[in-house]
Amino acid sequence: AHGFWQVHPQAADAFAQVVREWADASPGARAWDLYAGVGLFASVLAEQVGPKGRVLAVESGRRAVADGRENLAGMRQVRWRCGQVEHVLRQRTDTPQVVVLDPPRKGAGRVVVEAVATAGPDRVVYVACDPAALARDVAIFGEHGYRLDKLRAFDAFPMTHHVECVALLRRA
């Protein structure tokens, strides 16, 4: 009740299904969920990597991290970090197989995109609430050898100009 959640009643399930299909993390793999909120996509990744894998969930909201830890308490493969994504990524040296990003409306931005690209995941699944910010970030990923492979748009805010998108980027 005190955090962000999608207003459309089917949005979370619809987005999670696309992330599940496109992330396709292998059992035992490492995955990152950036801007993790309360753990919707971290739970999807945790199911895919299984108990021998690892999911790093990064979220800046302390309340969301506390809720996420509670929501995913049975998934020991999920490690939570509370902090700004760009700061947490500076401390990372591991290579995830897949990264899921669900940034705020302004997008991830150059610093985060370059940090993700430098980590070298095979796939990036980007959930975006602003197509213009997504386009800018996809172009930055392109500078680092990633290409847009798939894109889906969702009318999660009927009768408004807002469109939610999910994009799959792959290393070229």
Rank of each mutant, 00 (worst) to 15 (best):
H2P: 05
F4P: 06
F4R: 12
Q6C: 04
V7I: 13
P9C: 13
A11M: 11
A12S: 14
D13L: 13
A14N: 05
A16D: 13
R20L: 03
E21L: 10
E21H: 09
S26M: 08
P27I: 01
A29N: 00
R30H: 11
R30C: 11
A31V: 08
W32N: 10
L34H: 07
L34N: 03
G37A: 13
V38Y: 10
L40H: 12
S43V: 05
V44P: 00
E47L: 12
V49Q: 04
K52N: 09
G53W: 00
G61Y: 02
R62P: 02
R62I: 03
A64D: 07
A66C: 04
A66R: 15
R69A: 09
N71M: 11
N71W: 06
N71H: 14
L72E: 10
A73P: 00
Q77M: 07
R79M: 12
R79I: 15
W80M: 05
R81E: 15
R81M: 11
E86A: 10
R92M: 15
P96N: 01
L101P: 01
L101C: 03
G109I: 01
G109F: 06
V111H: 01
V113E: 05
G120A: 14
R123L: 01
R123V: 02
V124F: 05
V127T: 03
C129H: 07
R136F: 06
I140E: 13
E143S: 09
H144A: 04
G145D: 10
Y146Q: 02
R147S: 11
R147K: 13
L151W: 02
P158F: 11
A167D: 00
A167W: 01
